[in-house]
């Protein structure tokens, strides 16, 4: 079953076309990764899925229902959880409050405590510091809080923007282990990632976005070490 369908999506910022006709399906239980150089429009696509940017044309469907004109909060309640590149942590709120915020997207409020408990099991570092302000967290802890918070709403679709950005390699191992565990649980994940080798290992399907256009990569495993591929799809020398 297709959970998310993006069809012919166009996004412009003033005269600049960021996304030019992107079509993408995400199967339920699947993991889709998008790679590409900076400024390719990756964040724009994810923001459009959560309803944070205005699209120029095209449609977005969730479980077959068109959600293109829905507000961000309605999408959250329909089961989309977004972890932005900036993590979106509320520094003036405590860690417990950050987690509890996502509970307002839950259909059954009574399950909130259990959901928060599950996230804390996944990321135990948060459990000891529940009453501290989130602004004291380190970069890795912020990422764990952001993902843990997203899971509190028990989302059907987890949307992650550059989860590895700014994290030390040792922390990355733990992070991607957690993401792999979520995948094995059957969660649906749409992730934008610059770290191609990790993205390829995590995802079922990998797409490359360049200049606002999407291209499906066949056999991405073979391409990871290929310098020509890296130059072409990631803008790296």
């Amino acid at each position: 079953m297709t959970l998310l369908e993006i069809a012919d999506l166009h996004i412009s910022y003033g005269p600049v076309d960021a996304v030019r006709g992107v079509t993408l399906d995400v199967e339920k239980g699947g993991v889709v990764a998008i790679v590409g150089p900076n400024g390719a429009g990756k964040t724009s696509i994810l923001s459009a899925v959560q309803g944070l940017v205005r699209t120029r044309s095209g449609t977005i469907r969730l479980r077959g229902a068109e959600i293109t004109d829905w507000s961000p909060e309605r999408r959250a309640r329909a089961g989309i959880a977004f972890v932005p590149e900036s993590r979106g942590i509320f520094g003036s709120l405590s860690i417990a409050e950050n987690l509890s915020l996502a509970a307002c997207a839950l259909a059954e409020k009574a399950t909130a405590a259990a959901q928060i408990e599950r996230s804390l099991e996944l990321f135990p570092v948060l459990a000891d510091r529940l009453n501290q302000r989130a602004s004291v967290l380190s970069g890795g802890e912020r990422q764990q809080l952001a993902i843990g918070r997203a899971l509190v709403s028990s989302p059907d679709l987890l949307v992650l923007d550059e989860p590895s950005l700014g994290l030390a390699p040792v922390i990355l191992d733990g992070l991607f282990a957690s993401l792999a565990a979520l995948r094995d649980e059957g969660r649906t994940i749409l992730v934008v990632e610059q770290n191609v080798s990790r993205a390829v290992r995590l995802a079922d399907h990998v797409y490359s976005l360049r200049g606002g256009l999407l291209e499906r990569l066949e056999n991405p495993q073979d391409l990871v070490g290929d310098p020509a591929f890296r130059a072409k799809h990631l803008g790296m020398e």
Binding site: L52, F90, S92, L93, A102, C104, A105
Partner: peptide, 19 residues
């Protein structure tokens, strides 16, 4: 708590489901 979150970052609060 939702109001405090909205005061810090309204867009992110909405993305989490805050009406």
């Amino acid at each position: 708590v939702q109001m405090r979150a909205a005061a810090e970052d309204f867009t992110m609060a909405r993305a989490l489901g805050v009406r």
